[in-house]
Structures are given as structure tokens and as C-alpha cells.
Design a protein around this nucleic acid. Structure first.
Lengths: 226, 226
DNA sequence: CGATTAGTTGACTAATCTCAAGACTTGTGG
DNA sequence: CCACAAGTCTTGAGATTAGTCAACTAATCG
């Protein structure tokens, strides 16, 4: 596991600075006004868990979006450069924190302006959009796992995620091999095996057969899930 | 680096098996017919690089989607369980390979049925959808990097990606600190530093200042990018 | 300038991988 | 229904990569 270093953090800067109100160019359905805002180095633009009120676009400078584990380990999912849109959410909270890398200028579009986003799409498109969004959320959580969790944490998280999807009374009938798990979690089959054994020794899971896992202590797993 | 093991691979199974033609329920804009297909264990459903002709939905069984590095290292981005939609692409090729984990049943929807996907959305939604898609593609590439590349490969890939976005004649003016790079690539600042030094020693890059990187040998970087 | 922060380098440690052997499962055919 | 074969999983020992800690150097900001 890795040392957690303080992120370079100046103090949070003043309030929102209105500069300019620009209409999105050539947009016929432009209900969205754009506010321009300047942000200082390391200033927070929005925080994980907040209700998303805007969608953002970088005008100048650069922005990082990241997730944190409870002990401060951080995974930056992306750097956003001029022209990039970020902060899109379909749910009720931001799943990242966004901060400026250096001084930056961004444009904010009221989220309410385009309502539930997918609503002005046909129903089929809507299904597809929501499938994309689910993939994206999964991918983003998975980056945190791959970049910042150790082997035991990876396996614990994986079991919990799988349990939510397919467990019957805390029994998981694994649909995949150890090799598949390994290639999903960025580990080797041996490390998967050792991690499972370790969880079993601690009484957290049972392994009646190789393909069946019984979760005996979900709380303990959740503690590992950080 | 990690040993590459052969994926359990039976031989590719026969052709497409039409079973059933079902209309998507309650869908008013349902131009899409659903074909049901059964696939055998480890059978390929589509391959990375292929032109995407369908969108898929798992009916029974489970499916893995993955990317490979040139030497066979594999990153499974997701397991798809009954009800899950997978294989959505906005571009002209599949960016993953999909295979059945065990015997499985899937439904195929002709992609042409909903045309360019975003087309029946308003223009603004369309921008948002395409921003989502970009994030998703980035996230998926990044999972491969986080899960299966070593430190030097990570840094090399990062520099190339960054160069494509912001380099002027192969000079990158880094907008982020070493800590930011580290937290993006799942490494520590020391390892970032050592990797950059190593690239410099090999004559692949120059580091005139900490925030400026000159790419001297892109080919070599691309070779590391696998 | 001088102080502070950011980045580099070295020596050492720890986590995970690699390689190898053995055990368990599963499927097949006698 | 048992025995064997093939594949899958587990375990151990040693190697390797990246992390940790610490000292030093370079850059940046008042």
C-alpha cells in the first residue's frame, strides 16, 4: 500500500465569479445559458457527493476529476483540457471531485436546462444512453480499484459488487474462472487464489467449492472495500 | 510484468443460430428486431476492431468484454449478466472483444435500426452523449493501462496521449504535477520521476525543465505503448 | 534572495508476480 | 460407477517491480 501525500491544496477560493453570459452557438434548442467562471489553482469546482447543478466546459487551463478512498488514496480519472466537457451526471450526485490544476476558466451550463438529459431522445436511444452511463460509472469505479487498491481490497470489492448483482442470500455462484477474475482485477490467478484463501482463513467467506462463495461477514468485506 | 497464460479457449463455435425474433416490448420507435442467439463457452461474440453491426443484450449466462495488449496481456473491462446491454459503439469499430463465460443466450439488435444513435436526440443532448462516449472510451483505455501496464509503459502511454492533445511540435508543456500524474497512473511520484529519468537516459525524451517534456523519439515511445 | 514547494535519487522493504509442484474438479469412456 | 485425463485451483519458494523513507537538488513565490 502506498503513502498518502497531501494534495497540494491552497485554501478554497472565493465565490463564483460571473463574467460573461454566452449563448451556446448555433444551438436551436439552447435553453442553456453559459456562465463563465474563473477558478484558482487547486480550487474545487464541485465535490463528490454534491448535487450536480451544472455541466462544465474548460475554456482555459486544465481540470482534474478524481475519487478518493477513505484513507486519502486518490485516483484521478481524467484531466480535462480546453474544449472538454466534464461533470456530466445522470444521477443525483457527483461521483467525482473536480479541481483546477492551475488557474483556469470554465463555462457552466445549468443542468436543469436540459432536464433529465435523455428525455429528449427517443426511448430506444434513452435505453442506450443509460446503458452507456452505467458502463461509464462502472468503468470509473473500476479505475479506482485498479489504480489504488491492493489485492485483498480488489477481491473484497469485487465480491461485494458481484453479490449485489447475483447473490441469493449471500451465496455467490461464480460465473467466471480465476483467470477471468484476475484479468478483471489486474492480478494473477495465484494472487486471486491467495486472497480468497486469506478471506476464508479470516472467516469472512466460505469456499465450499471453487465456483461457490458464501459471504459470512459482509461487514468485514465492506471494511476492506474502503 | 506478468506471465501471459492462454485463455481457456475451445475452438470457435458454428455460425449464428437464429432462434426467435422478438419485438422489443412497449417500444414505440422499435425499428429494432431482436434476434436470439446461443453461444458456447468461450465463443467469441464480436472482436476488437470489427465493424459493429449489433448491440447485444444478455438473456442467460454471462459475457466478458476485454482488450488485449500485443503480447497477450488481457484486461477484462466488465462482466455482463442477464439483462445487461453491451457492445454499444458510436465509432466504426468495436473497441473490445466479447466472449461467453459459459454457454449463454444473447439478443442482437441491428445497430442500423437506430442509425447514428444520437441522431434522434436534440443537438445539446447529442453533445452530451458524445462527451459521455468520449469519457467512456478514455476510461476503458485507462483501465487497460492501470490493470496491465508496467510503470514505464504507463508513462509512455500517458505522454503519447497527452502529446496528441496538447503538444506543439512534440513539446509537451505539462499542465499537471508529478503527484497528479502519479494519481492518474496508479503510481507514486518517485516512480514517475524514475520512469521519466529512464526515458531521458535512453534518449527518448528531453526534460529541459520539470514541466516541459520534449519527445525525441516517438517511435520508441509507441513501442513501449504496446 | 531566502524560504518553501516540487522533483530526483538512493537504499531498503513489501507486495505481487513467476515458476513449479501438488490437489481438487469435471468430464469421459470403459 | 469407477478410473483416468485434462483442466482448474491452491500453495510454496524465490524473483522482481514498485513502494517507502530519507536525503538532496531544482524551481517557484514572496
Amino acid at each position: 500500500m502506498q503513502t498518502v501525500r497531501a494534495s497540494s491544496s491552497s485554501q478554497p477560493a472565493p465565490a463564483l465569479l460571473l463574467r460573461d453570459i454566452s449563448l451556446p452557438r448555433r444551438s436551436p434548442d439552447a435553453v442553456a445559458l453559459g456562465f463563465t467562471r474563473t477558478v484558482a489553482k487547486d480550487e474545487e469546482i464541485f465535490a463528490e457527493g454534491e448535487r450536480p447543478a451544472f455541466i462544465y466546459k474548460v475554456v482555459s487551463g486544465a481540470v482534474r476529476t478524481f475519487k478518493l478512498l477513505s484513507d486519502g488514496r486518490r485516483q484521478i480519472d481524467a484531466f480535462h483540457l480546453p474544449g472538454d466537457i466534464f461533470g456530466i451526471e445522470t444521477g443525483e450526485e457527483h461521483r467525482f471531485t473536480a479541481e483546477a490544476l492551475g488557474d483556469a476558466t470554465i463555462v457552466l451550463y445549468r443542468r436543469s436546462s436540459f432536464g433529465a438529459l435523455a428525455l429528449d431522445c427517443g426511448e430506444l436511444s434513452q435505453q442506450i444512453v443509460s446503458a452507456m452511463m452505467r458502463s461509464l460509472e462502472q468503468a470509473q469505479n473500476h479505475m479506482l480499484l485498479l489504480g489504488r487498491k491492493n489485492a485483498l481490497e480488489k477481491v473484497a470489492t469485487f465480491l461485494l459488487v458481484l453479490a449485489k448483482r447475483i447473490s441469493k442470500d449471500d451465496r455467490i455462484d461464480l460465473p467466471m474462472s480465476r483467470l477471468d477474475m484476475a484479468d478483471h482485477l489486474g492480478l494473477t490467478i495465484e494472487t486471486i487464489s491467495r486472497s480468497l484463501t486469506q478471506l476464508e482463513r479470516k472467516g469472512i467467506i466460505d469456499l465450499p467449492t471453487h465456483r461457490l462463495i458464501v459471504l459470512r461477514d459482509k461487514e468485514a468485506l465492506e471494511r476492506l472495500d474502503t
